[in-house]
Design a protein around this nucleic acid. Structure first.
Length: 133
DNA sequence: GCCAACGTTGGC
DNA sequence: GCCAACGTTGGC
């Protein structure tokens, strides 16, 4: 199973919104690299939800429950469907930057990418960091 | 609020 | 096809 990280500004759509809705269509992604990642997602994959801007922290785990389909707002792009699994952390960007084993994360390397892959070791490390608080 | 990084657009 | 100008994202 592959792992991912998906960003949202909590003022636009937060973990609490996702829990309230029970799941959501992850649409509105308008970046080609991010689209390629969306297309690569498989049903059952898990993704961190990262609150950007005001929070800058990983706050939960989501599950991909439907693979890429045309974005309902613009069929040139794609969206997936996600559901909340559990709240974790928060593991802040600062925490991640302080941890040497996470220095190669796509989140760090390309901070503007809104949908990014997470390696298995990185995934485990962040879960571990989330569990120790 | 500023600025770096990155993507897109348009003139040539 | 190059590159300057511009817009957007997101960290600081």
């Amino acid at each position: 199973m592959a792992h991912w990280l998906m960003k949202s500004e909590p003022e636009s759509y937060s973990w609490d919104d996702l829990v309230r809705d029970g799941g959501t269509e992850w649409d509105g992604v308008r970046n080609n690299a991010a689209r390629l990642h969306l297309r690569a997602m498989k049903k059952g994959d898990e993704a961190f939800l990262y609150h950007s801007m005001s929070d800058k922290a990983v706050v939960g785990v989501m599950r991909i429950v439907r693979e890429a389909a045309p974005d309902p707002k613009d069929p040139d792009w794609v969206s997936v469907r996600v559901e909340p699994v559990k709240a974790i952390g928060p593991v802040t960007l600062k925490d991640i930057k302080t941890e040497p084993s996470l220095a190669a994360m796509e989140l760090i390397r390309q901070s503007r990418l809104s949908v990014a892959p997470v390696r298995d070791d990185e995934w485990r490390k962040i879960l571990e960091m989330a569990g120790t608080r």
